[in-house]
């Protein structure tokens, strides 16, 4: 058996160029596909069939607050009404609802039991409905969100 010739130990240099190429390609791909979008959020509404006609969902002592949103011909907001009274804007609506919720809490009821029914014109822009729900479902106080009304229902469309 012949002895194998002794080879000098050599440092194996790995060629890094293809890996760096691929890595940069990946980085550029992820950078280009990045699009920063505002996060989406939900308003959770539980609305079984037959509960949208304005009657309280259970043995409730508090009558529902009725908010009426009327539309102009182009779908923009014409006016807001609450329990038959005109309301100037959504801030005013928030304050009035806050007053009702505070009064309900003062009388021993739970604020979460207060129910609100939205009655909107058919052609009203949906953005106004979201503004109204935002106005009645909570208020921001010193950066904290104070929840107000959770039970929101829709009046059947087409009713007046």
């Amino acid at each position: 058996m012949t002895a194998l010739p002794r080879r000098r130990l050599e440092k194996v240099a790995i060629n890094m160029t293809p890996m760096i190429d691929v890595v940069f390609q990946l980085m550029i791909f992820f950078m280009l596909t990045l699009n920063i979008i505002a996060p989406e959020g939900d308003f959770d509404i539980r609305m079984p069939l037959g509960k949208s006609a304005g009657q309280p969902s259970d043995d409730l002592q508090l009558p529902p607050i009725k908010v009426r949103l009327t539309a102009q011909a182009d779908g923009s907001l014409a006016g807001i009404g609450m329990n038959g009274e005109p309301v100037s804007d959504f801030d005013d609506l928030r304050q009035r609802v806050a007053g009702i919720v505070d009064a309900a809490e003062a009388s021993g009821a739970v604020a979460a039991d207060v129910e609100l029914e939205l009655d909107c014109d058919y052609n009203l822009d949906y953005a106004n409905v979201v503004s109204a729900i935002t106005a009645v479902s909570g208020r921001v106080d010193d950066g904290r969100v104070i929840e107000m009304i959770k039970k929101i229902t829709f009046a059947p469309p087409g009713t007046d």
């Binding site: 505002a38 996060p39 939900d42 509404i45 539980r46 069939l49 779908g75 058919y122 822009d125 059947p156």
Partner: peptide, 29 residues
């Protein structure tokens, strides 16, 4: 945001008729 509220309500009503109860109205935060 520019859709008619009546159409949204109609979608909700049809969903209710099919037995769905939970709705999440989505908006940009």
């Amino acid at each position: 945001g520019r859709a008619s509220t009546g159409d949204v309500q109609q979608v909700i009503r049809i969903c209710q008729e099919e037995g769905f109860e939970r709705f999440a109205l989505r908006a940009l935060y």
